[in-house]
Amino acid sequence: MDTFALIVTIGVALFFTYTNGFHDSANAIATSVSTRALTPRAALAMAAVMNLAGAFLGSGVAETVSKGLIQTPEGSTGMGILFAALVGAITWNLITWYYGLPSSSSHALFGGMVGAALAGGTTVYWDGVLEKIIIPMFLSPVVGLLAGYLVMTAIMWIFRNSNPHKTRRGFRIAQTVSAAGMALGHGLQDAQKTMGIVVMALVIADVEEYSEPIPVWVKLACALMLSLGTYAGGWRIMRTLGRKIIELDPPQGFAAEATGATIMFGSAFVFQTPISTTHVITSAIMGVGATKRVNAVRWGVAKNIILGWFITMPAAALVAAGSYGLVYLAFL
């Protein structure tokens, strides 16, 4: 196996993690920044640290990505498939970041994997894609919407007779904790997705076996790149989540973040399912906003975001398939 190809593939995987960090950092901190619970730089620093910590909390999601979606390809063709999958995901991440659309880095990666695998003649485990990707893709936003609505309704009832000023101040402080939980969950979910890709590359290169634990250096490298990307910030997407869907106050921001963090931890630890941080927090914000009144949510922006959800996987798959074709013509 060409060592250079392995190094390049791992390097591209780590760059994907970096783009994931600045693309999805807004998910963890947009509500806290928009309600002025945290300053932007303080929020980014906190999110970077918590993303780093979250990456070391488990490995179930990484195992799903590395073994449950496509058959591990072999040789130089296999490395080309992984490379093309990452190019597809990175390209879609950069396009959606440029336009400020909070699409899913996770589904960009999964779409890239499927597209490159099909182009390279590798078996796609469609049952795994359906069970671990497609069903959670539709189910997690519904859960986020309903849970956000219920959590915010409970907060409104519990604090119905409290002093509004003191309540807002208290929830502004509480948002520090809920934002940290979101960032921890993001690290738990998204760093592991790249770990799975790196492990697959090492298996293709006969450097590692699936039976072995994920090497510490892989965890550390993925965690650091996600953390660095997070600190680089994602201001365009932050504006969309923090202001354009609905004007949030501190109780609403706390409700959305607490909902999102709970769903991400449950998905990672209970089901080992790689869900989209973007889907969960966006739908939670919508659910929280709907408690004020249904038309308080700017559903036009929400419609554009939902459209992005549906086109992310096929778009990344097409880019990845085209990238594999170029790699095949040039190197294979």
Rank of each mutant, 00 (worst) to 15 (best):
T3S: 12
A5V: 02
L6G: 02
T9P: 02
V12K: 07
A13Q: 04
A13L: 03
T17F: 01
N20P: 04
D24N: 13
A26G: 14
A28N: 10
T31P: 01
L38Q: 15
R41F: 15
A43S: 11
A43H: 11
L44I: 10
G58S: 09
V61G: 04
T64D: 02
P73C: 14
S76A: 14
G80P: 05
A84M: 12
A84E: 11
A85C: 13
T96L: 07
W97G: 02
W97R: 05
S105Y: 04
S105L: 05
A108H: 08
G112W: 09
G115E: 12
L118T: 13
D127G: 10
E131Y: 09
E131W: 13
I134L: 15
V151T: 11
T153H: 10
T153I: 04
I158A: 13
R160T: 12
R169N: 12
G170F: 04
A183V: 05
L184I: 04
Q189I: 11
M195G: 06
G196I: 05
I197S: 07
A201M: 10
A205D: 12
P213H: 13
L220I: 14
A232I: 00
K244P: 00
E247R: 14
P251G: 03
P251A: 05
Q252P: 00
T259K: 06
T259P: 02
F265A: 04
Q272D: 13
H279N: 04
I285D: 06
W299Y: 14
I306R: 09
F310G: 09
T312V: 05
Y328P: 00
L329I: 10
A330L: 15
